[in-house]
Amino acid sequence: MELKTTREGTNLIVDMEGRVDGTNAMDFQSALEGAIQQSDQGVIMDMGQLQYISSAGLRVILLVAKSLQKQNAKLLGCALSESVREIFAISGFDKIVPVHDSRADALKALED
């Protein structure tokens, strides 16, 4: 798994690549939590290059979504591959983390 983070104003964009599963979920958690700042309004996970995420990875997303909620910030996903989209749909996580087709759509959703 690779994470790259960039900022656009008060939004954090996280590019996810590879696989997130039980073996690296802890690393994923610390990298994500380390990158988020108190002032962030929105966090967008770009999953265009993410091949797979297991329930251990989804749990990290849930933890982050909960803590972002406390600072009134939003967590979004975008550009999900077919298989990751399916994982989100089956687990119902698309109800916790709104997913958008593209990064531009996600940024637009944060503006509204």
Binding site: L58, L62, S91, G92, F93, K95, I96
Partner: peptide
């Protein structure tokens, strides 16, 4: 319809 349990 249904979400994983213990989430919400």
């Amino acid at each position: 319809e249904g979400l994983a349990l213990a989430v919400l």
